[in-house]
Amino acid sequence: MSVGAQDPSVSSFYVNDSFYGDLIARFQDWDHDRNGICDPVERDAFRLLLEREARFLDQHKYDDWLAMLTRECVYWAPARPGGGDPRTEIAVMFDDRRRLEDRVFRLRSEFAWSQAPASRTVRMISNVEVFEYGEKDRRMLRSNFIINEFWDNEIRQLVGWCGYDMQNIDGRWLIRAKQINLINCDRCIRNPSIIL
C-alpha cells in the first residue's frame, strides 16, 4: 500500500495509540540470553545487514538506507537512558516514515547550515547480537556503534548502542524500528544533525 491518503510518506495514520503501545512493549525487556540466536549463519547475515546500513549512511546513500526500513517504520533516539516513554517524554529524535524523509530532504537541501559542508562519517558497528522475540518473521538485534564524525575541522565520536526490531517481508529482513541509545543522550550535544 503506497498510494493516496494512507501512504506513510505523505500522511501519518500508523503512528497511533496501538503503534506506540506495541513499540514500548517490544523495547521494554527483550535482550535476554535465553532469546539469543547462536546460529553463526543467521548472526552473520544480520551483521552484514548492519554493516551495509552503516555504509549507506556514511556514503549519504539515503534512498538505499530508507529502503532498508519498512514503510511504517520508526527511528527513535530517546533523550534518557533506558528509553523512557515517547508518549509522555521528548526524544532526541522520533521520526516516522514521513519525518525521516523530511530529514533526508533537509539534508539534501543546500540550506541545512548545520550540514553545510556536510559531516564526513566513518561508522564502526560491533557486538552484534540476534534475539528471537515473538513471531518467527521477527527478530530483535543489538549492536554497539561508534560514529566518527568529522565536522568543523574536528573529529568527534558519537557512541552508543542500537536496538532493532526486524521483520521479514517476502524473504527480506527490514527495519521496523531502530532505537538509537546514545550514551550521552541526556546531556547537551553539539550539532546533532546527522542521521545516526
Binding site: E89, I90, M93, R99, R106, W113, N191, P192, S193
Partner: peptide
C-alpha cells in the same frame, strides 16, 4: 511530544 521535537531537530541546529 512530536510537535515539539520538530523545531529543535530541523530548525535550531541551523541557528546554532
Amino acid at each position: 511530544m512530536r510537535t515539539q521535537e520538530g523545531f529543535p531537530n530541523f530548525g535550531e541546529v541551523d541557528d546554532l
